[in-house]
Design a protein around this nucleic acid. Structure first.
Lengths: 211, 211
DNA sequence: CTCACATCGTGATATAATTAACATTTAGGA
DNA sequence: TCCTAAATGTTAATTATATCACGATGTGAG
């Protein structure tokens, strides 16, 4: 396993491959080629092989990949051989939706705490959880050894919320607030900016209109 | 305005710039340099100038950019000089959250319809809207000339839902379902895969653990 | 056993994106 | 008016990513 720098796009595709392999495995298929994976997820066969090559040799020349093996390897690479506890800060519409989002649980993520500092929200039940005051973040994060925080607060309180998470020991933040968080070097942040995603689409719609 | 191929990353950054400029404008600041924008959004000054250069010359050498002017230009480039009607298919937790998401409205997007084929959800009120059967998609899309669809249905029904949207005339889809949609060439799709986003984080958490 | 075929892993090549460097232009003061 | 400082727009260099092409290896038929 080479310790080279791995493109983020490779990680994203690896996640897609692994989910595709889960489907394939469920169908009882034992072996699969890079071409079939490529077909299934909409990339080139060479891309599939290149992505996998960053992490080792998982296939057999002339044959292909063993589905179960490759699935296990991809999950391992992504760190999904264990479950990950996570907390959500911001119990608005989006935060509440994420607490109940089944997709997270299916991929190994367990939401173990939801926080807000809006008094009208504290105490509200979401699934088996109860919304807590943000002062409780530290306690819960330490108790469950949480490394992942999901930020669904308004932009104006995102910086504060992020600091609470980081001080409590969180090392990775999924940020839905449309602002740039500045965090220590040992904390990973990825943004999901919903409006920006739509704006990519409007940009392309306009481009086409002009032609 | 050069008709060159523009990197998607440039569009994403343009969206970020424009939101940053809104803040700056609100503070009453009249002029800004590429360096200050860069500082504010966490990229390099050269990157800011390069991104803008794809679309024209908006600054004055030795001076910088007029904030209001540049804001107007960036919004125009993204197609945000007009409002965009959009529909949401899938009235589960995520879909419901997006209907009420204020960030969309603030950036010019109006949700004009929410659909589901779950009878227990049809008729439910979300904001000023009422969840409708998916058979109504075509009617609403045509009535409001909707070009943008947001897909928040489970993976298993995503393909069907996408087809309903496309047949009704939608040309751009924001897909939250964790599957690869295959669509006609004149339809733009962008995926937001929430689990994948978390998996990027777990990958990096594991990487660090190893070192 | 050998051959034809399928398919991987990878080094070489091509393409794309970012960063750096700089010539050019403007503002403002002596 | 001329000089300095600031900051753009743009070309060139660098770095990163994706594609291609092919040698290597395993399978199965004859």
């Amino acid at each position: 396993m080479k310790a080279l720098k791995i493109p983020e796009a490779t990680i994203v595709r690896l996640s897609v491959y692994s989910r595709f392999l889960e489907q394939v495995d469920k169908k009882g298929i034992v072996t699969i080629s890079s071409g079939e994976i490529a077909e299934g997820v909409g990339v080139s066969p060479a891309q599939v092989r290149k992505d996998l090559a960053y992490f080792g040799e998982f296939g057999t020349r002339g044959v292909g990949y063993n589905v179960k093996d490759l699935l296990r390897h991809t999950l391992k690479i992504l760190g999904l051989n264990a479950r990950w506890p996570a907390v959500v800060v911001g119990a608005g519409n989006l935060g509440s939706a994420l607490v109940s989002y089944r997709g997270f649980r299916e991929r190994g993520f367990d939401i173990v705490g939801v926080f807000d500092n809006d008094l009208t929200k504290i105490g509200k039940r979401l699934m088996e959880l109860e919304v807590m005051a943000t002062e409780k973040i530290e306690q819960i994060v330490k108790q469950h050894n949480v490394k992942i925080g999901i930020l669904t607060v308004p932009a104006s309180s995102a910086k504060d919320a992020a600091n609470l998470l980081i001080n409590a020991g969180v090392k990775a933040i999924l940020n839905f607030a449309p602002i740039v968080l500045s965090v220590p070097a040992d904390v990973e942040v990825r943004d999901i900016d919903l409006s920006t995603r739509l704006e990519i689409l409007t940009f392309h719609l306009c481009l086409k209109e002009m032609m």
